[in-house]
Design a protein around this nucleic acid. Structure first.
Length: 373
RNA sequence: GGACAGGUGGCGGAGUGGUUAAACGCACCAGACUGUAAAUCUGGCGCUCCUUGCGGGCUACGGAGGUUCGAAUCCUCCCCUGUCCA
């Protein structure tokens, strides 16, 4: 295993919530953490400098997308992804496993790997556990994810078992290849699969623990299953995973999801929701969301959220933001993204704070009673 | 004054006798989005009624009248707009 260190600073008494600190090649990350998504080596609509201001400590980029364009070797030759994109804090790269799911019309999968048709020009591409590691080694990310098969929901037990076992075989290959080619400063995370079936999740976890990883991700969730099912899977995961390793719930989720899953022992999250929703005019507030382009905000002089201390809420009115959104001004995406990311990152700050002061249950209760998503 | 061209739903613009409440685009209204093929996509968009259905009624293609079983589409007159000629 690599040199990554994870300090468990505090564990909540009433819940499984954990307060930790992740030491990575490009810095220290306070957990629980939310990682904004920067698929193509850019968190859409915001500069890295702005991300730092908002409190982002770590971001996610995507190996598949950077492999297709501009190519991982080019990124390596440009000094690695951090230098290339001007972000000197930690980066986690997703392997392309999610694209196995989201680009399902364009791929063919077998035990060896995944054949894709490029979503850009249709040209043939090939991704295997080894290739995914090679790409991420070239990118130089702090945390490398194994290639997995992210299954669509719903799936039968049989389908889920077959897919999970394939993912686990891939995880073992990833482990071996990573040890051969990656930098010691990089960390490797395995991904638990098994859909919503407890026995498969358990088997998957066991297989990963055998191989041994720096951290453990929970994959294949938030793909359409009801939220309570997702919570059940996460909750069942807690006693199976080692306490001294970070747990990462991939692709989740809503602000409510984050708190509920922190309560179930999750340390790391990523999700496109704050950034994509921002561009589509959906803004988070403590009282629920608003769709800023709606006509009801035409002449609303209030900020998005009166309680929010983000740079957008300090200065701009809903009426102006609605105008930008309706007019499709680029600034609309910028300001909305700043607000939503601040909301998410601030939510994580509050979560960490409340865990530290042994008041996490209070925060959880407030959120559960608020009707927030 | 004359010669052409043309007046279609909020706008632009198809449609030249029937399945046209009228293509398509824009605007407008609402919704979706969870390890980003997403600054994307979907739906609605005359009025009205109800037992909400590929439902009923009404109004609608400049105005008035006419032909026809049936007219945005054909005819007559009128009004208006654009271009050109005097």
């Amino acid at each position: 295993m690599g040199q990554m260190k994870f300090e468990l600073l505090k564990t909540d008494r009433a819940t499984q919530a954990r307060r930790g600190r992740l030491h990575l090649a490009h810095g220290v990350v306070e957990t629980p953490v939310f990682m904004p998504v920067g698929t193509h080596g850019a968190v859409k609509a915001v500069m890295p400098e702005q991300l730092v201001t908002l409190g982002a400590e770590m971001i996610l980029a995507n190996a598949y997308h950077l492999f297709v364009r501009p190519g991982h070797e080019l990124v390596r030759d440009q000094g690695g992804l951090h230098r290339f994109m001007g972000w000197d804090r930690p980066i986690l790269t997703d392997s392309g496993g999610y694209q196995v799911f989201s680009l399902s019309d364009l791929r063919k999968i077998d035990d060896d790997g995944v054949s894709f048709r490029s979503h850009l020009d249709g040209s043939p591409l090939y991704l295997s556990p080894e290739v995914a590691i090679d790409i991420q080694a070239a990118l130089g990310s702090d945390v490398v994810m194994v290639l997995d098969d992210c299954l669509a929901y719903p799936a039968t037990h049989e389908e889920a078992a077959r897919s999970m076992r394939r993912s686990m075989a891939w995880a073992v290959r990833s482990r071996a290849h990573f040890d051969a080619v990656a930098s010691p400063s990089q960390a490797l995370f395995g991904i638990v699969q098994g859909a919503v079936f407890p026995d498969l999740r358990k088997e998957s976890t066991g297989r990963l623990l055998e191989a041994g990883f720096d951290g453990y991700a929970i994959g294949g969730l938030a793909v359409g299953e009801p939220a309570p099912d997702m919570y059940d899977v996460v909750e069942a995961q807690d006693p199976l995973l080692p306490r001294d390793r970070p747990r990462y719930l991939m692709g989740v989720g809503t602000p409510r999801n984050l708190i509920e899953c922190v309560a179930r022992g999750i340390d790391m999250f990523d999700c496109v929701m704050p950034t994509r929703h921002a561009r589509n005019g959906w803004l988070f507030t403590r009282d629920g969301h608003i769709v800023i382009r709606n006509s009801r905000y035409r002449s609303d002089e209030n900020p998005i959220d009166a309680k929010c201390r983000c740079p957008v809420c300090r200065k701009y009115s809903r009426a102006y933001l609605r105008h930008l959104s309706v007019s499709k001004e680029i600034l609309s995406s910028v300001l909305n993204t700043i607000h939503n990311l601040f909301f998410y990152l601030d939510t994580m700050r509050r979560i960490r704070h409340f865990i530290e002061f042994e008041r996490f249950s209070e925060l959880l209760a407030v959120v559960r009673n608020s009707g927030a998503q």
